[in-house]
């Protein structure tokens, strides 16, 4: 079985977001780029499956749509343990564009399982995984918190409102994963970092596709009123304020 893990490149989660060019873009000066937290966990789970000889997983490939500037993110994924990588050489303009490119890669290379994170921490779109599956006409299972392969059959657990469902599906399929899929992201060891340098990164030119959406402006969240402090000796006053001022209890 071959697994494809989709990797997005995002600002470190503690980044203070600043805008540039009249609030039409993000100021990228000083930003540390990391693998999207969900994608790091997807990759970890894919590698765990490959480590388990009974799973039948033979290879883990990562795919990224981005320019040469995201090369370090790809090398990091290789250092963590991916066998090889594919980079589609284009600015990732919107979910539609990215999903169409990855679907094209998947058509050419034929994977059994495609794993995507539930969202990227920058665009918060939750769309790429589902779009890839529809472009390919294959099933998708979303909100997946566990992915196993039992006797050659993929078995997933997905979160539903107020519970969980165990779902079976035939490969090929797209798993859109969230919390629980792996406990801790795997970290690159020195050996992995050395090996990553020689692992293959295939470069592909993008299909000509028009994005369907475009961000024309950013704004900061509406500022909140300053905190009103209540004396620790009189917490009852908090209840009074919540009841009579905020009117939320």
């Amino acid at each position: 079985m071959k697994i494809l893990v989709c990797i997005s490149n995002v600002p470190d989660t503690t980044t203070k977001i600043k805008f540039a060019e009249g609030n039409t873009s993000i100021d990228t000066t000083g930003i540390q780029w990391v693998i999207n937290p969900w994608d790091e966990l997807s990759l970890t789970r894919a590698l765990e499956l490959k480590d388990d000889a009974t799973s039948g997983v033979k290879s883990v490939t990562v795919v990224h749509v981005g320019t040469a500037s995201s090369e370090p993110t790809i090398r990091k994924a290789l250092a963590i343990g991916a066998d090889d990588a594919i980079r589609v050489n284009a600015e990732s303009s919107d979910a539609w564009f990215v999903a169409a490119q990855i679907a094209e890669v998947a058509k050419k290379e034929q994977f059994d399982i495609i794993i995507c994170g539930i969202e990227s921490s920058d665009f918060n779109g939750s769309a790429v995984g589902g779009m890839i599956s529809e472009f390919l006409g294959i099933p998708s299972v979303s909100a997946v918190s566990s992915l196993k392969i039992e006797n050659g059959q993929p078995v997933m657990t997905r979160e539903i409102d107020g519970g969980k469902e165990v779902v079976n599906v035939q490969a090929p399929f797209v798993a859109i994963v969230q919390k629980g899929i792996a406990k801790e992201p795997r970290i690159a060891a020195m050996r992995g970092i050395m090996m990553a340098r020689t692992k293959p990164v295939k470069l592909m030119e993008p299909l000509a596709i028009e994005p369907l959406t475009q961000i024309i402006e950013f704004e900061k969240p509406t500022p909140r009123a300053a905190c009103k402090y209540i004396d620790a000796d009189n917490p009852a006053q908090l209840i009074d304020l919540l009841q009579n001022e905020a009117k939320v209890i």
């Binding site: 600002p11 989660t13 980044t15 203070k16 977001i17 805008f19 993000i26 921490s121 920058d122 665009f123 918060n124 959406t213 475009q214 961000i215 024309i216 402006e217 950013f218 704004e219 900061k220 969240p221």
Partner: peptide
Amino acid sequence: TYSGNAFAHLV
């Protein structure tokens, strides 16, 4: 967007 650190006007 940006996990609540920014909001976008998306066309």
